[in-house]
Design a protein around this nucleic acid. Structure first.
Lengths: 228, 228
DNA sequence: GTTCGACAAACTGTCGACAGTCGACAGGTG
DNA sequence: CACCTGTCGACTGTCGACAGTTTGTCGAAC
């Protein structure tokens, strides 16, 4: 193998697997629309371009397939996942399902430590809402919701959320922008926090239903505009 | 490669992927406890035993890893997933989360066709409850719940359920037996069906909570007895 | 008897290569 | 002109091999 490849700087000691590096490269390329939705990816071309053999490319592609970023057809290879409005609705409905459950579990033993952590995260989100990149805002947003689910204490639930997280990044990236109003983001998350602090399950449910509903409507509308 | 291998060599016209065949073999071996929980699986030994090369074995193992039947450690290989009581609780809690959501969605547009299909499936379950194998009973049970979720109309939700289905098979197989009482199975599912037919969301939620709760308690208790 | 280190075996990560298969395209036929 | 068919190129599925790492063992030192 050549001493340098297109994945990253080979001057840095590469402790990590080639598979992970290729997976990261593919993920970034898909998120950044370098690869168009529905586009066919050739294993040989990717391997040649990255300076690695087909084996790690293949494994990375399988990984992204399990994450829903690629789909494979037997004997035909991998294609970039193309999402339509219906699938987007399904993803957000599943997200609502998971987050409702997490909120309900969490409100039972919500304590000061958890509240402080979440509060700090919202503050971070407020900071980055001003001038940082869109992807940074999205990441901090996802961190908040991931914290809520992690605090719920069900690791399998967290794994399910991580699974759809990749798809969420994809569809959010597809519409090219995050929430319209920077202020609405923080407000919306403060409401979630207050609902948790109130200890009222019904209020939690209302808050998360509203929160996810707004996000879903925004994304579905965005994808509708993107559609030719 | 030799013309016959140890997988199954079904000379059907449709020749399936080696990967799928190896995956099926591994799945069966894990479910049937031919491979003990926590056991290390050697790629070379598996490949040699099955008469294939390491590539399809590796891909199949990655597939099972994504399904939660195997776990991998870098440079060390694959290990059969070992479930403890806590993980089992998490899995059933996630299952409850998904099925609650599906029931809530389904009760909104429950019609005669869906009711008929589910009713027929419960009848099938009653038939096999008498003398068929344990695995058959489990499969028919899962078919019922999968139908409920499929009728809810969210394909992504169905995929999430299919994901934990593999883990459910594993943990049910671990305790070696299905529900204690054959009659209770049918009764319990009739209750779900009646709740859906009633059109009452609260009744649906009560029914599914009870149903999953019983199953979880049974399995958690079973795993507790199995634990050394 | 215990602990440490070197050596050997086995295994994973990665690579290049071959064969079967799919899709495109040119050429022939109605 | 439309349709079928044979050929060609490209690609995936699969294989065997090599290198580096992990693991287990055996002997020596304390």
């Amino acid at each position: 193998m050549s001493s340098s490849n297109a994945i990253g700087d080979s001057s840095v000691i590469q402790q990590r697997n080639l598979v992970e590096q290729v997976a990261d490269y593919l993920t970034q390329s898909i998120i950044s629309q370098k690869f168009a939705p529905g586009e066919r990816l050739s294993e040989v071309q990717l391997a040649r371009g990255l300076g690695v053999s087909r084996a790690p490319v293949r494994e990375a592609a399988r990984l992204l397939e399990s994450r829903g970023l690629l789909v494979s057809q037997p004997r035909r290879g991998f294609f970039v996942r193309a999402l339509d409005a219906a699938e987007l609705n399904d993803i957000f409905d599943l997200r609502l399902c998971l987050e409702r459950h997490a909120m309900a579990r969490l409100v039972g033993d919500f304590d000061a430590d958890k509240e402080r952590s979440l509060r700090r995260q919202v503050e971070v989100m407020c900071e980055v809402a001003a001038g940082d990149s869109e992807s940074r805002k999205i990441e901090e947003d996802l961190v908040f919701h991931r914290m809520v689910i992690a605090f719920a204490g069900n690791r399998r639930l967290l794994k399910a959320f991580d699974d759809i997280t990749h798809e969420l990044r994809l569809c959010i990236a597809l519409i090219g922008k995050t929430h319209a109003d920077p202020d609405s983001i923080s407000t919306s998350h403060w409401l979630l926090l207050e609902a948790l602090a109130s200890g009222d399950p019904d209020r939690c449910r209302e808050a998360i239903d509203y929160h996810i509903g707004v996000a879903r409507d925004y994304v579905v509308q965005g994808i509708g505009e993107c559609a030719t």
